[in-house]
Design a protein around this nucleic acid. Structure first.
Lengths: 131, 131
DNA sequence: CTGCATGCAAATAGTTTGCAGTAGC
DNA sequence: GCTACTGCAAACTATTTGCATGCAG
């Protein structure tokens, strides 16, 4: 952490995102930390997630509700269409497709890409659709 | 359009998404149609975009603000990090990567994927950063 | 001390929904 | 005429922001 000034809350928030695989939303981080830190406010969570993302310690993920990932090296995700959960995939991130994209379309200066697979996770596949 | 019942508004909304390349948000569709259709309400735009997406006539795109695309066949997008605009890319959608992903990780039943490149569009590259 | 960071609450943006009236079939 | 669809406005959800106070340096 090499931010402007140390804060216990920022430390906690960063740890919370690092310590989970679930690519949490701001709300999820808040709910997780609140019990042990009753004075923590949701605004602080939002402010620090944004700060940490600007610093590059976290990355924002492109979904309808912002989710954060402490694994800042580009990698591939899977999103379950049923429960909405996000999972990391072991498929390597292929930087060469950026080059291919850039040369295919000279209008754009390609920096990176997001590759998100969609379908059903195991749990949702095994649990018959409720109702 | 084979929906439950014809409505002029739904027709207009569908046309508006089909007639543009800009992958509009609900707000953009509303602003475009409102002048010529003063009685149109934003709620109706949202309701019909959702209906049309359920019917498969439009697809929702996975961004922080929902955007819609009338091109329902899977294809590749580019999102400018500066202005936020979405563009279609001419890179073919490669269905085989779904198979590769599925066999790489048996936890998931992969149906499709979104491939979104990011970087700078020509306009933002040529326009020096303002302020 | 200084001023960045916090807690709180109000504000804003995006989207959904309840209800009474309108219009497609 | 039946009822899905509409306009309107209120409700909700996600996120940002203004302000007084707190705490790191």
């Amino acid at each position: 952490m090499s931010l402007k000034r140390y804060s216990r809350q920022r430390e906690l928030i960063y740890q919370a995102v690092r310590d989970t695989q679930e690519h949490p939303t701001a709300e999820m981080v808040y709910r997780r930390l609140k019990p042990a830190n009753p004075s923590l406010s949701l605004g602080t969570v939002y402010r620090n997630l944004n700060l940490l993302a600007e610093e590059g310690l976290l990355v924002r993920m492109p979904f309808s509700v912002e989710r954060y990932d402490a694994n800042t090296s580009p990698h591939t995700h899977f999103r379950c269409n049923s429960c909405g959960e996000i999972f990391d995939l072991d498929i390597p991130y292929d930087r060469s497709v950026d080059t291919i994209a850039a040369s295919a379309d000279p209008r754009f200066q390609v920096e990176c890409h997001d590759l998100i697979f969609r379908g059903l996770c195991r749990q949702c596949r095994e649990t018959p659709p409720e109702i």
